[in-house]
């Protein structure tokens, strides 16, 4: 049995603001019967532009109903600008936390709110549309949505993404794609946080290796990939950098040229002027 907080049970058994607002200024509908949960949110603004009345209808489990109920409490009395800042994290925190596998319920709340605001801003003319490209076809989750949830909740694994968005929870075919999205976002984050060493500084061995890796990843590999090849860093011994060429590059007649004029030249340019590159042969 799920461990729900008292707050979740309270909002499930005594949901606030159930129903539909008459002549709403904004309407948001997300989810579907097939997905196992769905939420319809309607709101009306007062003359100062604040949310005067908001109501919900939800098909779903206890945590879906509780998340919807809390969402209405959170945005009541707020302006559109204020309300649009509400995140799924806030909804979950207000409930004293949700089981990890149920986090997607809080995400559904935030999505419904966004859809309702968008509907209001376009004068009720525009129906909420999915942004980005569909990654998970089973549950209709887009790359944009996955990226956003990863960033807002600091997610690091595919399993977490599934718990938050359902993506990957059906046939599982999109799991590699989700991993790619995680990798690309985490890669960006690492770049933001880690001060990369610069050429010209006195480098420690670790700094040097990481600078070599980065140079290979960013400057050398893309060029080789364009020709169907690849490169792998094998070892660094002082000034000597040992690499292996893969794919089309391995066994290419102009490999020697590639090593000197591309790999070594780039490493000298970005890391250190006296680097010597050696190739590790396939069978070594």
């Amino acid at each position: 049995m799920w461990e729900y907080t008292d707050k979740v049970m309270d909002h499930f058994l005594n949901p606030r603001n159930v129903g539909e607002v008459e002549n709403p200024d904004g309407t948001g509908e997300v989810g579907s019967l097939a997905c196992g949960d769905a939420l319809k949110l309607t709101f009306k603004l007062d003359k100062n532009g604040k949310i005067a009345d908001v109501k919900f209808k939800t098909f779903g489990c206890a945590s879906a109903i509780a998340s919807s109920s809390v969402l209405t409490e959170l945005i009541k009395g707020k302006t559109i600008a204020e309300a649009s800042k509400v995140t799924n994290k806030e909804i979950a925190e207000y409930l004293g936390g949700l089981p990890e596998q149920k986090m997607h319920c809080s995400v559904m709340g935030r999505e419904a709110l966004e859809a309702a605001i968008e509907n209001y801003q376009t004068g009720g003319s525009k129906k909420h549309q999915l942004e980005g490209k569909i990654v998970c076809t089973c549950f209709g989750v887009t790359d944009k949505e996955i990226e956003r949830v990863i960033k807002e909740n600091n997610l690091t694994t595919v399993e977490q993404v599934t718990n938050f968005t359902k993506a990957g929870g059906g046939c599982g075919g999109c799991k590699p794609k989700i991993q790619e999205i995680i990798d690309s976002i985490r890669g960006q984050k690492e770049k933001q946080h880690v001060q990369m060493p610069q050429k010209g500084q006195k480098l420690t061995n670790i700094q040097k290796i990481s600078l070599i890796e980065r140079t290979i990843n960013e400057q050398i590999r893309p060029a080789l990939r364009a020709d169907g090849g690849d490169i792998e860093l094998v070892d660094v011994e002082g000034k000597k950098v040992i690499v292996a060429l893969r794919g089309m590059c391995a066994g290419c007649k102009t490999a020697e040229f590639t090593m000197k004029d591309v790999v070594e030249a780039r490493l000298r340019e970005f890391v250190c002027d006296d680097i010597v590159v050696e190739e590790q042969k396939e069978n070594q």
Binding site: G36, C61, T162, G170
Partner: peptide, 9 residues
């Protein structure tokens, strides 16, 4: 239902 099992389907 999906929700009782912790799976999504």
């Amino acid at each position: 239902s999906a929700c009782t099992s912790g799976s999504l389907e």
